[in-house]
Design a protein around this nucleic acid. Structure first.
Lengths: 353, 353
DNA sequence: CAAAAATTGATTGACGTCTATCTTTTCGCC
DNA sequence: GGCGAAAAGATAGACGTCAATCAATTTTTG
């Protein structure tokens, strides 16, 4: 029953070549005649040989060093990312992977570039970074990759950079999802959705908004989008603006917050009392979760950072041991209601969304 | 920068004992004085020693053998489970895990027991099975565990059995989620939800129904639940019954299908034309996906079998390596709309849901 | 105090792969 | 046919752990 899995020696024997030759083939060290290489590959196929990664890593004394570059600041989504990473560290250690979590000032391209250069000098095996759109960042990524470091962009892609992949949601899809939820909640009736953004120039927020509007438009336009609020991710601005807009426009039936600064939004909702508009917002963090639990908010769309980190780690590993593996399954935004909230594992840290 | 991670020899040296003693401690082979054991543990602590699992597995020539016992039949959810497992096989092989996927006639406790006994005799390391409630199954599970085999229940738990854990969603939560979505889609208006079940005695379906009704009731009862259809998971029965009920009760504003047999439901909806009730159903499979894409259905609640399998595999591994690891994060039902569908990876196989 | 038991030490050969070195064979070409 | 280059073979020591054995030491016991 337990005939053991074939080793490279078995492959060599089957192929009628020496171990050394088989080794040259699978590690493509070159200097092998095409004829022999073919026979080795055939033997691998026949026997169903699978390289024993454990033995290989042991022999190479390989310990991966991966770095995650996460923006610093009060943004609680990134705080959540960090705490997920911290939780993953010990587990990764058992698999001989050293994780380094590096904080960099948000939106600071220069600091990010400096950080990437430092990581390159430190000879890490892979880097996952939350992108900031900037040509200098692009260049830094290219430099890292030229050096043989695996580079993934996480949560936010960097336009123009040739990374090894992007792990994150498609913001247009997220926006369209929001749009569908808004339509569903209007149940065929007319309505006006008030969008709240961080900054309209941040392309992730803009994509979400556009996606939402697309879906509304495709549904026939009974639900429309009102002029947006640009909250600059600051809850005080959001609070004041939202308050004003709701007062002056009673036709608002729903609010869609595509970005951060939702603490201010929650405060306004608390003040609204009984009849409040439909509310859809992004990212499940401390206060958005509480708002969902208390019924102040209807829906939270989340990008499931746990999945993103898992996918990023898998991807970095795969590239680092030159394993052929298909592109990772794209991350799809999750929809949370009051009833299907995942258990809150994190310690209740607060901040701005 | 890269001082290497300490080995067990380092630990022994630090503790002032021989390698053999340190080995006896970490593998608790016994025959070590408490005093020495403490010193070894202290040294492990000090150095931050982590056992190199790769080396250990290599030395032990350990290849895990896990079996997944999945009901056979036309049910396309289980077909999906199977195809996910099949896809996971090669990847697992690289990590020296042999996966065996075993089919067993659905709801056949005797066959399931026979299968479990066979697996026990074959010395597998772990088993994940889709439960069938039956005292004989309980006994078989207990027997397996007594034999040292890790046993997880997947998708459906077995009441009364002491397994190593349950990996699957909480059906009450799933039902409550459905209830919330129905409420959201009614937008405060009155309505009557027509529930469709497989068999009312299947406790998973019953739990979903109860959960849904709970949420409706808690919201004040403007949306109520109509008498249910028991479709016995057969699409022809569902089709006929549903047709009749929609015709005789024009007050039906929504349909909630808690079980399988959704192909019949879809046919009725196709015939309905323009104005159809709100529709919420379970499990993202071929036709439910298509129904979502074409707009015949509003929401699909899915238990994310990919996650379930991943969690089950991790759990089985952890138990098999005698690694201490907390209980797995509970699986939470996912909500899919037309816009946030994950890419369809599976080949388009069809069947009943 | 001697004998028995418990504990510790020392050592060794796997496990499957990597890496390196050295030797031998084969091949193409003048 | 002989030369050099390319290809192939042979071999050995690491990597960190496991599992086993046997000897040496300490402790307990009668």
């Amino acid at each position: 029953m337990d005939r053991q899995t074939p080793t490279l020696s078995d492959v060599a024997r089957r192929a009628g070549v020496s171990y050394a030759t088989a080794d040259r083939v699978i590690n493509n060290r070159g200097g092998v005649a095409e004829k022999s290489a073919r026979r080795v590959r055939a033997a691998i196929e026949d026997l169903g040989y699978v390289r024993n990664v454990a033995a290989a890593n042991l022999a190479q004394r390989r310990t991966y060093r991966f770095a995650f570059v996460i923006p610093e600041g009060p943004n609680s989504f990134f705080q959540r990312l960090r705490s997920i990473l911290d939780a993953a560290c010990p587990e990764m250690l058992a698999a001989r992977v050293g994780l380094e979590v590096v904080g960099v000032a948000a939106f600071d391209a220069v600091a990010l570039v400096a950080c990437l250069e430092r990581l390159g000098a430190q000879k890490v095996d892979g880097v996952a970074l939350v992108g900031t759109d900037d040509p200098r960042v692009c260049a830094a990524i290219d430099a890292l990759r030229a050096q043989g470091v695996a580079v993934l962009t996480l949560v936010a892609d960097v336009q123009g950079a040739q990374s090894d992949g992007y792990v994150g949601i498609d913001n247009t899809v997220a926006g369209r999802t929001a749009g569908r939820l808004l339509l569903l909640a209007h149940g065929g009736r007319e309505g006006r959705v008030l969008p709240i953004l961080g900054v309209a120039t941040a392309h992730d927020h803009a994509e979400r908004l556009a996606g939402m509007q697309q879906t509304l438009a495709e549904a026939g336009g009974r639900v429309t989008s009102a002029p947006l609020i640009e909250g600059r991710d600051r809850h005080d601005i959001v609070e004041a603006e939202l308050h004003r807009r709701l007062a002056e426009d009673p036709g608002i039936t729903a609010i869609y917050s595509a970005g951060a600064g939702n603490a201010g939004l929650v405060r306004v909702l608390e003040a609204q009392g009984r009849s409040r508009p439909i509310v859809v917002l992004h990212e499940l963090v401390g206060h958005s979760r509480r708002a969902l639990e208390t019924g102040l908010v209807d829906v939270v769309i989340d990008q499931r950072p746990e999945d993103e980190i898992q996918t990023a780690l898998d991807g970095l590993r795969a590239i680092a041991d030159r394993r052929e593996i298909g592109p990772p399954a794209p991350i799809v935004p999750a929809i949370y209601l009051r009833e299907n909230l995942p258990p809150a594992a994190e310690r209740p840290s607060d901040g701005e969304t």
